[in-house]
Design a protein around this nucleic acid. Structure first.
Lengths: 110, 110
DNA sequence: ATCCTATATCGTGAATATACGATAAATGGA
DNA sequence: TCCATTTATCGTATATTCACGATATAGGAT
């Protein structure tokens, strides 16, 4: 981005946006899908399934980890990642709250 | 970003990511909230409620419109925007589908 | 017709994001 | 101990995002 106006927005909105932004890349969506499907933790298998270099995948994992969408522990040469369902469903909840609070009066709308 | 690897990802994942990315900024979250609360369509009132210049708000509106999160029509000097609940709940659905397909076996996880 | 108002678009600069190869770090095995 | 393996981090190039002011555009009012 650029000179982000961090000020002037609520903490809640900033958190929501950060989480959404972390989902804002197909590679990270794909990572979450794979992680969710296998349930158990993986690492380099993610690299095989993606059209990206290992270092790039590592960056995406870091981004997902920073917002708490996945958690992971490094165990020597191997890493162990798994989806953090709580964060994911929390985001879903915030979105549906937005939808719920929406009394869409279509007659008044364009 | 940079040289995006559009190839190698499913259309579904790209669409999901695009929608999520559109939500990835506190200003756009705030816009959606305001739009949802008032229900009826607004325009310059959004600018007043945000710590941003008019042109910047217009850019954010365009981003939201491009992914179908809001719809708007220009009516001469005034514009008319409203939340597109369908897109928003579709995103929420995709996310909860991700959560649902998550058989989190914590014993195997880190 | 001319001005006023409200939005969108253009042009620009600065900060981020994305991607890669190369390197560092940490462990297990020879 | 030394090497192979796996992952994270560094350095870098390029593209994109975000923000702003200035300008264009389109009606409505005078």
């Amino acid at each position: 981005m650029a000179q982000r106006k961090e000020q002037g927005f609520t903490r809640e909105d900033r958190r929501l946006a950060d989480t959404a932004k972390a989902l804002g890349h197909p590679a990270r969506i794909a990572i979450l899908r794979t992680l969710a499907k296998r349930g158990t933790c993986i690492c380099g298998e993610l690299v095989e399934g993606l059209p990206l270099a290992q270092s790039t995948v590592s960056q995406h994992l870091k981004a997902l980890k920073q917002v708490g969408l996945i958690s992971g522990t490094v165990e020597g040469p191997k890493s162990c990642y798994c989806v953090n369902a709580k964060t994911l469903s929390s985001l879903g909840g915030s979105l549906s709250a937005l939808v719920d609070g929406l009394h869409q009066d279509l007659s008044k709308c364009c």
